[in-house]
Design a binder for these strands. Structure first.
Lengths: 220, 220
DNA sequence: ATCCTAGGTAGACGCTTGTTTACTTGCAAC
DNA sequence: GTTGCAAGTAAACAAGCGTCTACCTAGGAT
C-alpha cells in the first residue's frame, strides 16, 4: 500500500538532466515487478491474480500482460531477480551447513521473509510454472550445492538439504514465526547446522556394521 | 481409474442379507471420499476441482456439495481419514528419529505416495482451509511429537522436524523420486535419522563456548 | 498550433470455479 | 399397481480468472 520507497520522481526543483515524465514505462514496469515479487512471495503463484498485482502497482491490469507477456512469464521474471540464497551457498564448503542454518534463522527473525522461500511450494500448479520453478531451483540451489560436495550420491544429499530449505516455507506460513522465534536463536542455529551437516556431509566408510544411531546427542 | 477395489456389490449369487441396491448413498459417499483423497493428495486443494472429484467418483457434481456441504468440508473429511504418520510418531521416544526417517524413505520407495505428504503445501490458499490444515497438523504431528520430547523449546524442536517432513512433498513433486531412489536407501535412512535427531534431541548443556561445528562427520 | 507516437485505460472476451435449484428416476412399502 | 421418498441428474447461477482489443491522452517533435 501507499508511499513506495522508489517513488522518487524528480521534485519541482528537479535537476532537469534525468527528470521523470508522468508517463514512465520503465517506472511502471518496475512497480509491477515489485508488486509481483511481494505478492508471489506472500501467497504463491496461484494465490495471486494479475488484478491484485496491478492494483498494488497502481497500474492498469492490461499492462501486466502487455509488458511481461503473461502471468507465468512475469513469475519467471520475479524468480530471476531473487537470488539471496545464491550468496549463501557460495563460499567455502566446510562452512556451508552453518551458512544455510544462519540463513534459515535470519529469515525467521525478519518479518518480511524473502519472497523465494514462500514462493516455492504453492506454485507448482500449471506445468509451465513448474518448469520455470524447477529450472530456477536446479540452477540456484541444487547445482551450486552439488558443486561443493565430495563423495557419492552428491545429488541425493543436496536434495535432502533442499528438503529442509523448502520445508521452512510451509511451516512458517502455517504455524507462524513466534514459536521458532521464542527459542534461543543460537540453539536453533546449532540444530539447523547439524541438520544440514547430516544431509550434506560425505558418507562414512561403513566397514563394520557401525552403530550410527543418534550421533549428535546422548540422552539427557 | 477403472476397476475399483471396493466395487464388491453382491454378485448374482449374493447372500441376499446385505445386497447392495443400485442407488447406494453410502457407497457413493465413499467413492467421492476416496476420489477426493487421491486427488487432493496428488494435486493439493487448489489443484483439484469438485468436477474432477465427481468425475473420478463417477458421481454427479452436485452430490459432492450435497453430501459433504462444501469442498472445504470435504477436504477436512479427507484429512481426518489420513493418519498414517500417527502410528509413526507413536512409540518409544528414542526410536522416533529413525522411525521418521524410515517413514520418509518408505514414501520414496512406493510410487503412490500417501496423500498427506503432497497435500500439505499447496493447500493453504483460503483461510478456512488453512485453519483445517493447521488444526490437523497440530493434532497429528506437532503435539504428539512434543509429548515425546523432554527439555526446553520442545515446540521449536518439533517444528524443525516438521520442516523436514513438509519439505519432502515439494522436493519430491518438483525433482521427482529417481534421484533419491538412486542413492543407497540405508545411507539415506541414516542421514535422515541424523537430521531428525539433530532437530529433536534435547539440547546440550552449553557450559563452555564449545565448538559444535559439524558434529556428525569429519572430512573424508 | 498541430501531429504522432507511445503510455495508459475501460471493458469485454471466453472460460472455469463452487454452489444451488428444479427436475427425473429407481426402489421399497402399502 | 400406486404412492412416497430419497438418490441422482442436468442446467444454470454468480463470481472470478487470464487475456485481448479498441479506445483515449499526455507530451515531445515538427
Amino acid at each position: 500500500m501507499g508511499m513506495r520507497v522508489e517513488d522518487e520522481r524528480a521534485g519541482p526543483a528537479g535537476a532537469g538532466a534525468d527528470r521523470r515524465p508522468k508517463r514512465d514505462r520503465e517506472a511502471t514496469e518496475r512497480r509491477i515487478l515489485e508488486a509481483a515479487r511481494d505478492l508471489f512471495g506472500e501467497h504463491g503463484y496461484d494465490g495471486v491474480t494479475v488484478r491484485m498485482i496491478a492494483a498494488r502497482a497502481e497500474a492498469n491490469v492490461a499492462l501486466v500482460n502487455r509488458y511481461f507477456g503473461s502471468k507465468a512469464a512475469l513469475f519467471g521474471e520475479v524468480l530471476a531477480g531473487e537470488s539471496v540464497i545464491r550468496g549463501v551457498i557460495a563460499g567455502d564448503p566446510e562452512g556451508l551447513p552453518r551458512r544455510l542454518a544462519e540463513h534459515f534463522v535470519r529469515q525467521i527473525d525478519q518479518r518480511p521473509v524473502t519472497a523465494m522461500s514462500r514462493m516455492l511450494d504453492r506454485s507448482a500448479g500449471h506445468p509451465e510454472v513448474k518448469e520455470i520453478l524447477l529450472r530456477y531451483l536446479e540452477e540456484v540451489i541444487v547445482q551450486p550445492m552439488i558443486a561443493q560436495l565430495e563423495g557419492p550420491d552428491a545429488r541425493a544429499r543436496a536434495l535432502l538439504a533442499s528438503t529442509i530449505i523448502m520445508g521452512g516455507g510451509p511451516v512458517r506460513r502455517l504455524f507462524g514465526l513466534e514459536d521458532l522465534r521464542a527459542a534461543d536463536p543460537a540453539e536453533v542455529t546449532d540444530r539447523l547446522t547439524a541438520m544440514f551437516t547430516a544431509a550434506l556431509a560425505p558418507p562414512v566408510r561403513r566397514e563394520a556394521p557401525v552403530h550410527r544411531e543418534a550421533p549428535v546427542r546422548r540422552e539427557a
